[in-house]
Simulated scan of single mutants.
Amino acid sequence: MSSPSPRSRPFHQVDVFSREAYRGNPLAVVVDAEGLTAEQMQQFANWTNLSETTFLLPPTDPRADYRVRIFTGSEEFAFAGHPTLGSAHTWLESGGVPKAEGFVMQECGAGLVRVKHDDGRLAFAAPPLTRFGPAEGELRSQLAAGLRVPESDILDASWLVNGPEWIGVLLGSADQVLAIEPDFAAMGELKVGVVGAHRPGAEADFEVRTFLPGDSIMEDPVTGSFNAGVAQWLINSNRAPGQYVAAQGTVLGRAGRVHVTTEDGDIWVGGHSTTCIRGTVLL
Results as ranks from 00 to 15, higher is better:
92 L>A: 14
92 L>D: 03
192 V>L: 00
248 Q>C: 02
18 S>V: 07
9 R>T: 12
20 E>Q: 14
200 P>V: 05
171 L>N: 06
270 G>I: 10
14 V>G: 04
273 S>E: 11
5 S>D: 13
138 E>T: 11
246 A>S: 15
71 F>P: 00
267 I>H: 02
72 T>R: 02
204 A>E: 05
250 T>S: 11
179 A>E: 13
216 S>H: 10
73 G>Q: 15
86 G>A: 07
218 M>V: 14
101 E>S: 14
195 V>C: 06
99 K>P: 03
187 M>P: 05
74 S>G: 08
208 V>T: 08
32 D>Q: 14
282 L>C: 12
193 G>K: 00
279 G>L: 08
149 V>N: 03
174 A>R: 07
183 D>V: 03
119 D>A: 15
231 A>H: 04
137 G>I: 04
128 P>R: 12
91 W>R: 12
226 F>E: 01
170 L>M: 06
264 D>M: 11
175 D>I: 11
280 T>E: 15
101 E>L: 09
20 E>M: 08
40 Q>G: 06
105 M>T: 15
70 I>M: 03
78 A>L: 12
86 G>Y: 06
78 A>R: 14
153 D>P: 02
61 D>C: 10
147 L>C: 09
46 N>Y: 11
200 P>A: 11
163 G>N: 05
159 W>T: 06
147 L>F: 08
85 L>I: 15
158 S>V: 13
36 L>I: 07
153 D>C: 14
70 I>C: 00
268 W>T: 01
247 A>I: 04
